[in-house]
Simulated scan of single mutants.
Amino acid sequence: MTDLICVGAIAGAYGVRGELRVKSYCAVPEDIESYSPLWSEDGSRRFALAILRPIKNGFAARIPEVATKEDADALRGTALYAERSQLPGLPDDEFYHADLIGLEVYDTGGVLLGRVKTVQNHGADDLLELQLAGNSATTFLPFTKRAVPTVDLASGRIVADPPEGVLPDPRA
């Protein structure tokens, strides 16, 4: 179970009859159900997820083994993973976040800037959180074609042209 992609998370109980509140990270949120069975991060648990109805910020869903509010609450925070083979292929200029994490980031002159630590999205474009080379500081790089002209998954590297002010001033 090494090729899993996070497609959602259980946010807790919804009601008192074992229904779950589920957040989907899929481009088409309802698609999370079609990737069932879903897995826990370590692949030790399998979930046959069925969406019941849309609710604010996600879906009310059911998993057969979950019968009570307490069972549902016990799963709060559980990330849900699908096997990569179940997911659709992506166009050349789109990437699964899991594929970007860990890639080395170089500037257009070939200088190592750091490594992608996380991919964040706070409502606008995605942001790559970079662990800067040579220290423990991080910074956020907009994941746009202008700021990140090249992503080469095969070689495990990204070429970036960070906007002014994204990188710390080396003179400081």
Rank of each mutant, 00 (worst) to 15 (best):
D3Y: 12
L4D: 06
I5L: 14
G12Y: 03
A13N: 07
V16F: 13
R17L: 13
E19P: 05
C26Q: 04
C26S: 02
C26N: 06
S36K: 10
S40P: 04
D42S: 00
G43C: 02
A50M: 05
F59M: 00
A60V: 05
A61L: 02
I63T: 07
E65G: 08
K69F: 02
A72Q: 02
R76L: 06
L80P: 00
Y81E: 01
E83N: 08
R84D: 07
P88K: 07
G89R: 15
L90K: 10
P91T: 12
D99M: 01
D99N: 08
I101D: 06
G109S: 11
G110N: 00
V116M: 02
K117W: 09
V119S: 01
Q120S: 12
A124S: 11
A124V: 13
D126L: 11
D126V: 07
L127D: 05
E129C: 11
Q131Y: 12
L132G: 00
G134A: 01
N135E: 13
S136Y: 14
A137D: 10
T150M: 14
D152F: 10
A154D: 15
S155W: 14
R157S: 10
I158C: 09
D161W: 08
P163C: 05
E164F: 13
L167E: 01
L167Q: 05
A172M: 14
